[in-house]
Design a protein around this nucleic acid. Structure first.
Lengths: 341, 341
DNA sequence: TGTTAGCACTCATACGTAACGAGTGCTAAA
DNA sequence: TTTAGCACTCGTTACGTATGAGTGCTAACA
């Protein structure tokens, strides 16, 4: 375990490096107000910290830079909760105050604001809607072979899907089916829908035995959940960081962010609550010099989506964590109140 | 006007520069098979071409580079139609063959393929749906004050919008309204909808005089067209270009591309048919070293959307133009056949 | 008169050297 | 245990020179 003084110095180094982006030397630290030791003492401690793996030296005559292990210790033990400024709080509150039900929009704005506030890249995973309850289902035939299935949830979210119609199914059959569904399944959470179809509807449907299979197929397709939506904002912010003035590094990162499935990978961490992945801890080479902080937001206690920030390893962890926590809490409250209506 | 030989040489220079990205010297040109003159002769012509404004010299002892005027002449007079390779044709045909009606998806794939084929950034503006005909309209009340309005077109496209309900309007009134709309307005093109509402529906609606205004308000909101969707793919491709190895240049461009409204600006050129905007001809500073080629695709003869390519001024104009033309034609055919069904 | 060979000149780039200075590690004194 | 002092390291910067691609001009040539 690190001594108090070692922790103090490590904290000072990380802190300094986060703001200066330059390797920090012993003299710089010794001049800080919260440090009462000469540069020589600091040098000794730095040497020890390097041996222990918390610091690294780009080259002999340079200052020290935190290693991944150093950042990890900083994040786990040294970070103090940051106060958000009035302006920041204002922006966030404004977001929650907006009376937009359309959750897609809320999520989009969230990503926007998150990126603005932190000056890093924001990644937001839209809320899964399995918890939402069915308000209305509609199947609109377009011609003999195709139809559009539309599902409206009680929160006003609309999913639509183009489906192929099996042969021999006419508009009247579809109408009967839809009426049945609306009568029986309103207010059922989406995740229960398929199951309830089998429980409650299949009996009635089986009367026209020959079309039973086809009907089930239609429903099966109609109720398949939409692919997940990821929102990315401020991807170019990384270019403001001095350590990313290199096109090749930036290219790798931005190419990664262009791919939806990779984005999902990045932000789709299991479990709820705040997670920090620092530098080398990331699997993907392109972002081994980046850190990702994510947290989940929830609806009625269950996590339904994620918000995350991607920035350089040299990230303002304290601030980002505060913003994310505050935001996720607000989003959850907002969603939940909307859900309970 | 340029002499034949001047045109030959200008063509050779542009051609060479497009592929090498280096200022081209007189010797390089004189060695080309299609040129039968010594480097000295070429030098004289080059000097003249520079004086005329078609070429530029980065510095005294460097070769020449085409100016915006030079590219313009090249594009307007010298370009020969390029043949697409089997592989390229294959990819494009595959796109058209896919039986996806959901036009959003088609447009998304289009952008993807365009960027893949050209190695530049693709911007695609989704088809306006004003020409699409109403298949079904539905208003689903969520609670006392809010409802979702859903419009389905005959091509299977679904637009939805959250609307506030005026006081005193109950589910039964809404149902009456919706039934009326579906009975009277099916198969009416969306752009005529509002007008037809006033012509054909207002009479019947006026019976319940007190709610007339409110009803109109609801319809007004429901029928407001969705904001336009722009798809961007391969934004990072610009980083592969040697002249964009500079983070600051790239940053300006990518920041521009991050803004939806700016994208619309870039691609939303008036009129139909192929347009090329070269380097300095662009308004925005960030892309004064880029060229944009766009063309429109149409539905039943009317232009409804745009496809475009953004690349360095030093772009493979011939190839990009061929790909865009071929693609726009195919898209138009696809949409139109779908429209006529 | 148009074309070409020859040559002096220009200028960005690469390279090697030297000076600089930020920062270290070590030693010895407080 | 802490700190002042000092030699040493090594990346960065500055500068002068060599290099070479490419030009413009002149004079000879077809």
């Amino acid at each position: 375990m690190l001594s108090d003084r070692q922790q103090l110095i490590l904290n000072a180094i990380v802190d300094n490096y986060i703001h200066s982006a330059e390797p920090v030397g012993s003299r710089t630290i010794s001049k800080r107000e919260d440090i009462g030791f000469s540069s020589a003492t600091i040098r000794n401690e730095m040497s020890d910290l390097e041996e222990l793996g918390y610091l690294e030296q780009p080259h002999t005559s340079a200052g020290r830079v935190p290693s991944t292990k150093g950042y990890r210790f900083y994040v786990d033990n040294l970070i103090q909760p940051q106060h958000l400024s009035e302006a920041e709080l204002g922006k966030l509150k404004q977001l929650f105050a907006e009376r937009i039900l359309h959750s897609e929009k809320v999520v989009e704005y969230t990503a926007q604001i998150l990126s603005q506030l932190t000056n890093y890249t924001a990644i937001v995973l839209g809320p899964e809607i399995f918890e939402h309850r069915l308000k209305h289902i509609q199947i609109v035939p377009l011609n003999e072979t195709q139809a559009v299935a539309i599902v409206v949830t009680h929160t006003g979210r609309v999913e639509n899907k183009l489906i192929d119609l099996p042969e021999g199914i006419g508009p009247s059959e579809i109408e009967r089916l839809v009426n049945l569904l609306n009568a029986k399944l309103t207010d059922v959470p989406l995740w229960q829908l398929k199951q309830r179809v089998y429980q409650e509807i299949s009996g009635e449907m089986r009367r026209n035995a020959e079309q039973y299979e086809e009907m089930l197929m239609i429903l099966d397709k109609s109720l398949k959940p939409e692919e997940e939506r990821v929102y990315l904002r401020g991807a170019t912010k990384i270019m403001n960081q001095p350590e990313f003035r290199d096109v090749d590094k930036v290219k790798d990162i931005l190419e990664l962010l262009e791919q939806q499935d990779q984005l999902l990978h990045l932000i789709g961490m299991p479990g709820e609550g705040l997670k920090v992945r620092i530098g080398q801890e990331n699997q993907l080479d392109a972002i081994k010099q980046c850190s990702i902080i994510t947290t989940s937001y929830s609806l009625g206690g269950k996590p339904v989506g994620m918000v995350g920030i991607l920035g350089p390893t040299r990230m303002e962890y304290g601030k980002v964590i505060s913003v994310l926590n505050y935001l996720a809490e607000g989003l959850s409250r907002m969603l939940t109140s909307q859900f309970e209506k």
